[in-house]
Amino acid sequence: MPVDVDAVVLSNTQLSHDYNTVILAAPRLGDQALPGQFVMVKTTYGDDPLLRRPFSVFEILRDDAGRSTGVSLLNKRIGVTTRALYALRPGDHVRCLGPLGRPFSVAEPPEQAWMVAGGVGLAAFATLAANLRARRVDTTLFYGGRRADDLFHLDTFESLDVHLRLATDDGSRGDHGNVTVPLRRAFVSTDRTTPVRLYACGPTPMMRAVTELAASEGRATEVSLEQVMGCGLGGCYSCVVPVRGPDGTHFVRSCLDGPIFDGGSVVWEQLGE
């Protein structure tokens, strides 16, 4: 059941001039959060900015006894709430409502897991990687960014035994180009009968490209969509995604039926910006 916690900021690590990771003391959130779920965040008590914003739960933090102590958020400074999150100091408070939404389905051996992340889309995958590792699933992260210094938390994923396949727009690290470059190569070198579960999170064009590339290999992709969201609880019908079903295309609420969708069912051209 979702809770609204007034979480204390334990640390804020500025990873670059626009990315940061905030660690929040929120044991009740960490207790419940499943891979792919999100929280609705508000950094102020005032009316401006008014609405909360959705953020993936990045990591669930645990003490030595394995008890949840809190969660972290991976943030990129873009708008008003993300600017406030970037500037947080230890001791500040952040209101977090969650965990919310339908989680990823977690692969089981012998299935492999391929996680495909673009930019801040990495935020969806640390908790998933931890769950996959607990199940001993062979896991690969395909991760694209603008430049070498725009790829973060590689050590986090390495420590979870995740294989890394990197790409950068300027070729300064990994493949030159976007993340579909190493992904395409992986498809070529993997037998079609090998069971693989694919996950994607990042810019919409990238998730669409991954879904279509995977489909051409006969594989499905679970995508984590970032729609503009009002409430996170199904109240406002603003975060809808056009989804193809047996009886035609319908708008379904991303907060309740997502944010994780079967990429093949999403009508990408009607998704909006």
Partner: peptide, 16 residues
């Protein structure tokens, strides 16, 4: 209903 985008935040308010 309408296609997204369906809401936008404005000063101390929102449009839907």
């Amino acid at each position: 209903g309408h296609p997204p985008t369906r809401i936008v935040e404005t000063p101390s308010g929102m449009l839907n």
